[in-house]
Every structure is written in structure tokens, then in C-alpha cells.
Design a protein around this nucleic acid. Sequence first.
DNA 1: GTCTCGATGTATCGACTCGATATATCTGCA
DNA 2: TGCAGATATATCGAGTCGATACATCGAGAC
Lengths: 204, 204
Amino acid sequence: MLELAILGLLKEQELHGYELKKRLGDTFGPMSRVSFGSLYPALRRLEKAGAVEVIEAGPSAAALSIPTTGSLSGERAAYRARRASGGRDTRGRKVYRITADGQALFEKLLAAEDASPEDDRSFQLRLAFARHLAADQRLGLLERRRAQLIERLARARTAVRSGRERLDSYARAVAEHSTEATEHDISWIERLIAAERSDREEVD
Amino acid sequence: MLELAILGLLKEQELHGYELKKRLGDTFGPMSRVSFGSLYPALRRLEKAGAVEVIEAGPSAAALSIPTTGSLSGERAAYRARRASGGRDTRGRKVYRITADGQALFEKLLAAEDASPEDDRSFQLRLAFARHLAADQRLGLLERRRAQLIERLARARTAVRSGRERLDSYARAVAEHSTEATEHDISWIERLIAAERSDREEVD
DNA sequence: GTCTCGATGTATCGACTCGATATATCTGCA
DNA sequence: TGCAGATATATCGAGTCGATACATCGAGAC
């Protein structure tokens, strides 16, 4: 699902890897932070699939924005780096842009209804991009999520009940807090569903 | 951290893989569900390290509990299976028991203070086993967690503030709900800390 | 009776992710 | 000047997931 997040961010704006990582963290909450060990391979996959392309960038943003003073030393540094790493240029940013294929892939990934039914991150991400969905797809997403949370809650409740005697106070506290969090999530989803429905009525 | 969970459950009771998986799910909440692709390799690692051992089990629980009627057909089936898979017996349960080394490993893993500072699952697991910690270790665990959540909240708030204009209503809803969940967690942790302190005073 | 279905049970595979690490540049400031 | 810390790309090993395979067992359909 990292691909979806990357494409969604690149839809708004051309970005390079490092900046992409930062935005992933603080746009979608701390839960969907990514490591470089996932991000760079994902970018390469997307590039190979033709969903994104690299806009050749100079050695640094500074050298691009202040070409008169920065360019000379930048060029020199670039030359040195190129020599040191055997011809491959390793420094400087690689700025990515989404392609038409990438746009199509984004739509497809976002709308996929088989979306892993128990994956919190994936839901959070889809909802954050819900603007790009049709109204009924949005409602479907929310209702599938609600059903899923309700089922989770039911199972958690029976688990707590059956382990009431077996569990000590700490394990019980964890289990109870977890069910509370699920209840909180459900009521949030239900507020969102209500808001969607009232939006729909306004259109009528 | 899967090792810690396995050892903790085996401390209470001898179990086989499948049952272990079920208990992981409903003892520690839906967040710490594990796949077989993690569980069985983890059990093998623990066995190789001498932390757990296999108690040789018959072809099935039924054959063990009702030996008079079940044993004959069970034996026959075992023979057939052994022949079919080239001598290796693949059916039947492998029941695991924790060893003395495993007990020591459990203590070590549970008390480890370097525990990944951003890993929610790991905290939940440690807290569920908090009974096995000394009172001051318990308090330390809770206070480290609180500090971590407070820092997360601060970063989330500045992120929301800076992206106030950039984000549409859906992305904003996700971000806001995420900060609410963190606040909820913090107040929970603080209740737990208060409870710990009052316990401590009672002992005095 | 037997046949099929879903739960129980162990196991592996490929794809993906993480945290640690390496390397180099740029920026600010002492 | 030099050096610490942010910026930036990249790889590695270990661990995890979801899918899949394979076998047994109990229950209910016919």
C-alpha cells in the first residue's frame, strides 16, 4: 500500500524521496511512517512500472535556486562525486513526477474493494484520499470499515469474557483499553457516515 | 517481539502452534495477531536456541484422550502419513513447553529498556506481562511510554497546524482522529501511572 | 453409509518492511 | 576553519505477512 501513498502525494506535487518520507509521516499520522528501506525500493518499483518518472535534478536545490553563485562549486562537487563513485552520480536529489499510467494506477489502488479487511493503515490511507473517490465508493469504504470494526469488537468482547478469570489485571487493562479504542473508532466512522449521507441529501 | 509473546503464553501453559496463534489474537487484542508464516519460524528459532522444547504428541488430541477406541485407526493413519511423506511425520500436534533458559530469556526480553520507542505492539505486550516486572520497572515502562506519546502528539499537532490549508477535509479528519486517539492513550497511561503510585503508597 | 464442508493443524514461499548502516553533501555557527 | 547536524540516496539481513499446500477430524446433508 506504500505505492498508493506515494502516488497520492506525487499527484499533488513533484517530490524527492526524503521529502516524501517526511510528508508520509505527518500527513497520515505517526502510524504510517515508512523507512527508507521500504521507500526507495518502492520508488524503483514504481519507476520500473512506468508509474512515476525522475525529473533530472541538479546537485542540490540551492544550486538550482541560486545558480549564479552556487553553480560553480556545485559543478565541481558533482565532478568529484562522479569520479569517486565510479561514474555513477550518487549525490543530489532525484525528483519524481507521476505519469498518466501512475494516475490510472492510483485510481485502481484506491478503489480496490478487496482491500485487506484488517489493515488499519490501508483504511486510514484510503480515507485520507477519499476526495478522489465517487460519493458511493466513499460510503462503501466507510461501511465496510464499520462492519469490520463491529466484528472485531464482538470478538474482543467474547475474548475478554472468556478470559475474565484467566487474565491478571494488567492483561485485562490492555484488553479493555483495546476494546474502548475500537468503540471510539466505530463512533467516529458513524459520524463520518452521517456526514456523507447529509451531503448526499443536500445534492438532491 | 513475537518471541516474548510466545514465551509469556508458554509460561502459563504448554501449547501447540495453532492454539498459540489463537491466544495471541484474543489475549493481546486484534493488533497483535500473527500469521503462521511468522509463528512457526519463531517457534523453530526458540527451539534451536533451547528456550522451548517439544513434548512429543500423538497423532491427535482425540487419540490421546480416548485411547481405547481412537488409537487403532490413529496408528493406521499415522503409518500411512509417515509413508506418504517419506518418513517425516507431518500431521499431529507439536506441543511446546518452556525451558529454564526460556524463562531467563523471557525475563530479559521483558525488561529490555531499549525497547523500540515507537512500537505500539511491543508496549502493549510488555504491559500485558507487567505482572512479571518489579514495581519500579513497571513504572519506568509506563513513563517512557507516556513521554513517547506526548512527543508524538506534539509532532502531530504541529503537522496538523502546518497542513491546515494544504489538507482537504478527509485528510484532516484522519489527522485529527489520530491525535484524538493519542490523547486518549495518554490519559489512559496516566490513570495507570496513578494506580501504580497509589499501590506503592499502600505498601509503605 | 458416505460425502462434502469447515475447522484444526503444520509448514513453506515470495514479496514487502523495518532498523541499522554506509556514504556524501549542505547549512549554520562557534 | 572546522565540525556537528540536517539533508539525501542507497543497501543489507532479519522478520513479518498473506497466500498456498497438504492432511486430519467432526458434523450435518442426502
